[in-house]
Simulated scan of single mutants.
Amino acid sequence: MSVKSSVFKPVVAADRVDYPQLEHAIQYWWDEQNVRQHYLKRNENSDKKYSFLDGPITANNPMGVHHAWGRTYKDLYQRFKTMQGYKQRYQNGFDCQGLWVEVNVEQDLGLKTKRDIEKYGIAAFVEKCKERVFTFSKRQTEQSVRLGYWMDWGNDYFTLSDENNYTIWHFLKKCQERNPDL
């Protein structure tokens, strides 16, 4: 049974906002006006610097709500420092190494043990892991752009890169040289 209220008007479909359509319209306008690019370059000549390196999200699946919350908080701090005139490096990162990527690939391939990976071929398994990382880093980038998370997209760092791995080995070598007993 429907009860009519004398206080509230009924909500009609025409009064409802199409949020995805509105989101796309805003993103289109931002892209058309190069708003993100202007923002990223806003303080490039500033003497004040703020260093913020995004702890990389693991690129093994689409983002979850908890990732979106984290990215929103990170973006908030960077925007605040941008408004204060600080020059920043807006570089996004992707964690490409680790158990979660491997577990997902094992599940996709129906592998149950480490011996199954050896039978499948370690090199082929590593390539499947890389494929997954690049597939989901692209997806997470799309999701992050939809969040309005303004980074220098396309200039991302990937922990699977040679540069990243050689930098880590160089750092460990320097630590060893400074304290050989470690």
Rank of each mutant, 00 (worst) to 15 (best):
M1D: 06
V3F: 10
K4A: 09
K4P: 02
K4Y: 03
S6W: 02
K9R: 13
A14W: 01
A14S: 14
A14K: 13
D18N: 15
Y19K: 11
P20S: 02
Q21V: 10
Q21I: 01
Q21N: 05
L22H: 06
H24Y: 07
H24A: 15
A25F: 09
I26D: 00
Q27I: 12
Y28V: 05
W30M: 12
D31S: 15
E32L: 14
E32W: 11
E32M: 13
Q33D: 08
N34C: 07
N34T: 08
Q37D: 14
Q37W: 02
L40I: 04
K41S: 14
E44G: 01
N45I: 01
N45Y: 08
D47G: 13
D47T: 12
K48N: 10
Y50P: 00
S51G: 11
F52Y: 15
F52C: 08
D54I: 14
D54T: 10
G55S: 12
P56V: 05
I57Y: 05
A59Q: 05
N61W: 03
P62D: 14
M63G: 05
G64T: 13
H66A: 12
H66N: 06
A68S: 12
G70Q: 05
R71S: 00
R71P: 01
Q78C: 13
R79W: 01
F80T: 11
K81E: 10
K81D: 04
M83D: 12
Q84H: 02
Q84V: 01
G85V: 07
Y86A: 10
K87I: 01
K87T: 01
K87D: 15
Q88W: 02
Q88K: 03
Q91R: 14
Q91I: 14
Q91G: 00
G93C: 06
F94G: 02
C96P: 07
Q97C: 07
Q97M: 06
V101D: 11
E102Q: 12
V103S: 03
N104K: 15
V105R: 09
V105P: 05
E106L: 10
Q107F: 00
L109E: 02
G110D: 02
L111M: 14
L111K: 11
K114W: 06
D116G: 08
E118K: 10
Y120P: 00
G121Y: 07
G121T: 11
I122F: 13
A123D: 15
A124V: 01
A124P: 00
V126N: 15
E127S: 10
E131I: 01
V133G: 07
V133T: 05
F136N: 11
F136Q: 10
S137E: 08
K138F: 02
E142L: 04
E142A: 11
Q143T: 07
Q143D: 13
Q143I: 09
S144Y: 04
R146A: 12
W150L: 04
W150V: 06
D152Y: 05
W153E: 02
W153L: 06
D156C: 08
F158K: 08
F158H: 13
T159H: 07
L160K: 06
L160V: 02
L160R: 00
S161Q: 08
S161I: 06
S161G: 08
T167I: 03
T167E: 12
T167Q: 12
W169A: 15
F171C: 08
K173D: 02
K174M: 09
C175W: 04
E177M: 10
R178P: 00
D181E: 14
D181L: 13
L182Y: 06
